Simulated scan of single mutants.
Amino acid sequence: MSTPDVIVVMGVAGTGKTTIGPLVAAALGVPYAEGDDFHPPANIAKMSAGVPLDDHDRGPWLDAIGAWAHGRAGRGGVVSSSALKRGYRDRLRAAAPGVVFLHLTGDRALIEARMSERTGHFMPAALLDSQFATLEPLGRDEAGVAVDVSGTPQQIAGRAVAALHAMTAPAG
């Protein structure tokens, strides 16, 4: 079984990208990069104030993630990024053509409940509606898999790794 070169763990806030990403990276034996660490301070201040980012705000952030993914080509890695719009994913693919997306999906009520339980994160639950409004699920022509976020982190990561292996397994 092979795995994709670089995996981008995507989804709306609260789906567990920061929890599941490192588990998937550990299972695959590759490094993990936290997508939030690529945000410039102005983006964090804006989100902390409850103001959604616009496409202009996201550009430098996506470019930084794309540069990291490009630098991991041939060596593998896992990085988190909401990557909510097709255009954002296209931008990441332009920087690192081999990326594959792991879309964490789930029931809005579950995601909101998990967001309300976390502490020390700059993204307030109040922005969840804007995240769902912005979300464009993976298209059939996009390399990736969708995994439901119900269950424990270990269960979710296990399903994710299995789905990634299945998508990269040779046919036949």
Rank of each mutant, 00 (worst) to 15 (best):
M1N: 02
S2I: 04
S2P: 11
D5T: 01
I7K: 02
A13G: 13
T15I: 07
P22T: 10
V24G: 13
A25H: 11
V30E: 12
G35S: 10
D36L: 09
D36G: 09
D37V: 03
F38E: 04
A42F: 00
N43Y: 08
N43D: 11
I44N: 00
A45G: 11
M47R: 03
M47K: 02
S48V: 01
S48Q: 10
V51Q: 12
D57K: 07
R58Y: 06
G59C: 01
G59Y: 09
W61K: 13
W61P: 12
L62R: 05
D63T: 14
A64V: 03
I65H: 06
H70R: 15
R72Y: 00
R72K: 14
R75L: 12
V79K: 00
S82V: 02
S82N: 06
A83K: 01
A83G: 11
R86Q: 11
R89G: 03
R91M: 00
L92Y: 07
R93Q: 07
A94N: 06
A96I: 13
G98H: 14
V100E: 14
H103M: 11
T105Q: 13
R114W: 10
M115E: 04
T119P: 00
G120W: 08
H121E: 14
M123P: 05
L127W: 02
Q131I: 03
A133M: 09
D141M: 08
P153D: 12
Q155P: 01
G158M: 06
R159H: 12
A160M: 11
A162C: 06
A162V: 11
A163S: 14
L164W: 09
A166K: 07
P170S: 14
A171C: 10
